[in-house]
Design a protein around this nucleic acid. Structure first.
Lengths: 106, 106
DNA sequence: CCAGCATATGTCAGTTCCGACATGATGCAA
DNA sequence: TTGCATCATGTCGGAACTGACATATGCTGG
């Protein structure tokens, strides 16, 4: 929304933001959850394919087994950064990463 | 590395990890920086294309103008989560997101 | 020149995320 | 069963990230 338009709306008594923006936030956050899930699934598949344990992957990442478990479980305390880090450490290229992001989680 | 192999190496006196893994970490982190940069560039391009100011995008994200500025500048205190959030809020689909991730930053 | 808007930079307190550890659950082989 | 490996879950102190604010810089029209 342009600042000029926002000013007009506010002058007309609207509280620009709150409701509509809350819904918007929810929609975007939902998509983020989907993305995280797709990445999580990819981590588990790739790790299994390489025959690594969670502990071994954790070591590669400088992380811990428990965090890798949460990571693959789609725990909400896991960031996209960590998921991407895991996938890169599993040898994925940016192209492969992009493909995972674009596709739905199985 | 398989646990069995690791044990063999450790039994042979190797400290598995440290040096080689440090180099590995650096390489992966470098690629994360590249990814962040590509996303940051995409945010700026997309925002400009929509004719939004940093402040307006910040409002859409429930963030602040200064953070959007840092975001686009590739500031190291900005997470991939926030970058993805910004791009989704700018209307990008997961497919578009995937394409950005796969391509190099201009 | 100077307003006014957009963007950049620095800082800070509150929140979130992290690795690490402990512990529990599951499965499989001895 | 017992023992061992793997994965799951809960918790915690510390690190990293965040939004907000103040302020600086740049840029364009008057």
């Amino acid at each position: 929304m342009k600042a000029t338009k926002k000013k007009r709306l506010e002058a007309a008594g609207w509280r620009v933001g709150s409701a509509a923006e809350f819904l918007g936030l929810s929609a975007a956050e939902e998509r983020i959850v989907e993305i995280k899930l797709a990445l999580a699934v990819a981590v588990r598949q790739r790790r299994a394919r390489l025959g690594l344990t969670q502990g071994e992957l954790a070591q590669r990442m400088g992380s811990s087994q428990s965090r890798v478990a949460k990571l693959e479980a789609g725990d909400r305390t896991v960031s996209i950064d960590l998921l991407v880090s895991a996938l890169l450490r599993l040898g994925l290229t940016r192209q492969q990463l992009g493909r995972i992001l674009a596709s739905d989680a199985a």
